[in-house]
Simulated scan of single mutants.
Amino acid sequence: MSAEVLVVDGGRTADQAGRPVTEVAVGVLIDAQGRFLLTSRPPGKVYAGYWEFPGGKLEAGESVEEALRRELIEEIGVCIGPAHAWRTQLVDYPHALVRLHFCKVYAWSGELQMHEGQQFSWERLPVQCAPVLAGTVPVLRWLEEEAAAPR
């Protein structure tokens, strides 16, 4: 879990007092070749065209894993196996204060179907797609740190 707040809008001081936190479940899908899935933000949404890990907001009463299962079926058409809670990052975007709950997912069924008009890319480090959403940057750094760690 990360105690730091990632502030996105050019150095504004994070002032979270009184701002509601939007809880978001995020899937880091990793295939058998070690590639991870990135999807583009759909047209019409904030940061449309930016690349991120797929996921979405928790609904009332949902756990992170329940929200992730629902969101990935709705957004990309896959039913995931176990979701392994990994890291959490608070991101202070100009439009919202968001707590991202990242889960690693190694098993899923179904073919990718971009239900919201987004694009997808199976990536390795360094990623080739751009621009990458600010909340995705720490995950890429964590993956890089894990890859560099002695086994």
Rank of each mutant, 00 (worst) to 15 (best):
S2W: 12
S2Q: 15
S2C: 12
A3E: 15
E4L: 14
E4W: 13
E4I: 04
L6P: 00
L6R: 15
L6S: 09
V7K: 12
V7R: 15
V8H: 10
V8F: 11
D9S: 15
D9R: 06
D9V: 01
G10A: 15
G11V: 05
G11A: 10
R12Q: 11
T13Y: 09
A14S: 13
D15M: 04
D15P: 01
Q16F: 07
Q16V: 13
Q16E: 11
A17E: 13
A17S: 08
G18C: 03
G18M: 01
R19Q: 07
P20W: 06
P20E: 11
V24L: 03
G27T: 00
G27A: 09
G27H: 01
V28N: 02
D31A: 00
A32E: 10
G34F: 05
R35G: 01
F36N: 03
L37N: 05
L38S: 04
L38M: 15
S40N: 04
R41F: 08
R41I: 05
P42C: 04
P43S: 11
G44A: 09
K45T: 13
V46F: 08
A48Q: 08
G49Y: 05
Y50T: 07
Y50A: 08
Y50K: 06
P54G: 04
G55W: 02
K57G: 09
L58W: 07
G61E: 09
S63C: 04
S63K: 03
E66Y: 06
E66P: 00
A67H: 02
A67W: 03
L68Q: 04
R70D: 08
L72H: 05
L72K: 03
I73P: 01
E74M: 03
G77Q: 07
V78H: 06
V78L: 04
P82G: 13
A83G: 09
H84M: 13
H84V: 15
W86I: 08
R87C: 07
V91L: 15
Y93E: 13
A96W: 10
L97S: 11
V98F: 12
V98L: 15
L100H: 10
C103I: 02
C103N: 04
C103T: 02
W108V: 02
W108T: 02
S109H: 12
S109K: 12
S109T: 15
G110S: 04
G110H: 06
E111P: 00
L112W: 02
L112A: 00
L112N: 02
E116Q: 14
G117C: 06
G117W: 13
G117M: 05
Q119W: 14
Q119P: 03
F120M: 11
S121L: 06
W122V: 03
E123K: 08
E123W: 11
E123I: 06
E123F: 09
R124C: 10
L125W: 12
L125H: 10
L125G: 07
L125Q: 10
P126W: 14
V127T: 11
Q128W: 06
C129M: 08
A130K: 07
P131G: 03
L133Q: 05
L133W: 05
G135P: 00
T136Q: 05
P138T: 08
L140W: 14
L140M: 10
R141P: 02
W142G: 08
W142I: 06
W142Q: 09
W142M: 12
L143N: 12
E144G: 14
E144V: 05
E145Q: 13
E146R: 12
A148F: 10
A149I: 13
